[in-house]
Amino acid sequence: MGMILKAIWSQLVTLYRVLLHTFTPTDTVSYPEEMPYLAPRYRGRIVLTRDPGGEERCVACNLCAVACPVDCIALQKTEDEHGRWYADFFRINFSRCVMCGLCEEACPTYAIQLTPDFEMCEYDRQNMVYEKEHLLISGQGKYPGYSFYHVAGKAIKDKDKGESLNEATPIDVRSLLP
């Protein structure tokens, strides 16, 4: 008997709750006339960002490519004359991308970031293939201020050995001081 009463009560509460929802504002918007709000961390179109100095953040380490569950990122490392690594080409096949964000999580330099832009429809699948020039933006994206090369101990143009975060000046190997 108690069981049956409990079940009836539950049904009534459910009906009440549903009824209550008819008075709340609707979540559905008439897209595309009206744009929904998307949080800054919404996972849409992928971009490559630049560091505070305006240089490409991507160092072509390949971690995004290996993290990608659909293998839609391909890139090749190259180097400038000062030893800075960057991508020779960087290609994302968005027709395969599932916007999972694992590439962004894997990226050690905050270079690859997902943006709230999801409007990427094309009539031709080939147009879903983005190269570096399509991916690279001029800003720093969601993580301003970070520059990988100023943390890492590799010398590049205008940043010598010992000038990174937490680094002492290069030692003098020929010193005999105790």
């Binding site: 990608c68 293998d71 990122i73 080939q126 293939v129």
Partner: peptide, 16 residues
């Protein structure tokens, strides 16, 4: 088994 980029390597030539 961790080889990457299979669906993007030749996508500049053809997305198929």
């Amino acid at each position: 088994h961790r080889s990457s980029g299979r669906t993007a390597m030749s996508a500049d030539i053809s997305v198929r």
